[in-house]
């Protein structure tokens, strides 16, 4: 022992309990709590669609159309009524949730993966890589997103896979920019310099010292990104270049419903409400996560 031990002044400091902290803050934030509950219900609905759906979403039922060939109003055998093709709206909504969530999660997951990898590379190594990446993101971000998607899908042909790829192709740039900026400032922090001068390998610095600091931001932006991806998917389907028919998708249901708006308003309202609630819930949950994890603020002490 070479020096007097300092009085252990913080022996009683509570260890960090992220989950308990999250739960407490959730109880204080009612809109966020409702959003999380809504998202859990939505995920369950999508997952259990085959069990929950009262009817086959793709099948045209004879009793699903009135004698005049009009959609059946909500109630009776069809809780949310039927569409002009005599299909059950509730069942289509449930299956549509599957489509929306799948595309939202996959498109955004892919975008996140690419965006984080590119952002870290550009931010940490700088130089020519950074210049090239920054110009690409500039170019992509200056396109009108929807128009760009429509054009691409028209070329590649509409399919779930292509919708995912096209959305990812656009969204990675947003995350790459944010991550790049964060890495640029992290790289200059003294603890990173200290680790580098210790002789630690670059790969280890990136994974052990840079990435952990980005995780909160990635979680937040990924959550918000799901909402945007779902909106894009719905818009594409609404425009008829999204998920191909007869597969149920909320955007395409809205498109179908808008022609019968006066006669059968439920056709517009049912998918519309689902879409709004889902996007709102993702956004509110993202905001709550942002406050909780606070990726832009200095380290919490």
């Amino acid at each position: 022992m070479t020096a007097p031990i300092e009085v252990p002044g913080l022996e009683t400091a509570p260890p960090r309990r992220p989950l308990r902290q999250a739960w407490r803050s959730l109880l204080r934030d009612i809109p966020a709590l409702i959003s999380i509950v809504a998202l859990i219900l939505l995920a369950l609905a999508a997952l259990l669609a085959p069990v929950l759906a009262p009817h086959d979403p793709l099948r045209t039922y004879a009793e699903g159309l009135t004698d005049q060939g009009a959609p059946v109003a909500p109630g009776g055998g069809f809780p949310l009524g039927t569409d002009p093709n005599g299909r059950d709206v509730l069942s289509r909504l449930l299956y549509g949730a599957r489509v929306s969530l799948t595309i939202g999660v996959f498109a955004n997951g892919l975008a996140t993966l690419v965006g984080v990898a590119v952002g870290i590379t550009a931010g940490y190594f700088g130089g020519r890589v950074d210049t090239v990446v920054s110009r690409i993101t500039d170019v992509v971000m200056s396109f009108p997103i929807l128009l760009f998607c429509v054009a691409l899908i028209t070329v590649t042909g509409p399919s779930q896979r292509n919708v995912v790829l096209v959305i990812a192709l656009i969204y990675w740039t947003y995350l790459a920019r944010i991550i790049r900026g964060m890495v640029l400032s992290l790289r200059e922090r003294e603890f990173v310099t200290a680790t580098r001068t210790l002789g630690v390998s670059t790969v280890r610095i990136l994974f052990r010292h840079i990435l952990p600091h980005l995780v909160p931001a990635i979680i937040v932006y990924a959550t918000l990104g799901v909402a945007s991806s779902i909106l894009i998917e719905s818009s594409l389907s609404f425009l008829g270049v999204g998920v191909p028919v007869p597969e149920a998708s909320w955007g395409q249901m809205i498109d179908d419903g808008r022609k019968y708006y006066e006669a059968a308003p439920w056709l517009l309202f049912a998918p519309g409400v689902c879409l709004i609630v889902t996007v709102l819930a993702f956004n509110l949950a993202g905001d709550w996560l942002r406050d909780l994890l606070d990726p832009t603020a200095p380290e919490r002490r």
């Binding site: 003294e190 603890f191 200290a194 680790t195 001068t197 210790l198 952990p212 600091h213 380290e299």
Partner: peptide
Amino acid sequence: FRRQTQMVYQDPYDSLDPRM
């Protein structure tokens, strides 16, 4: 070479990785 020369930095709040 890095192993031969080390540095102790000025800011005790920034020179250690806060998440480690």
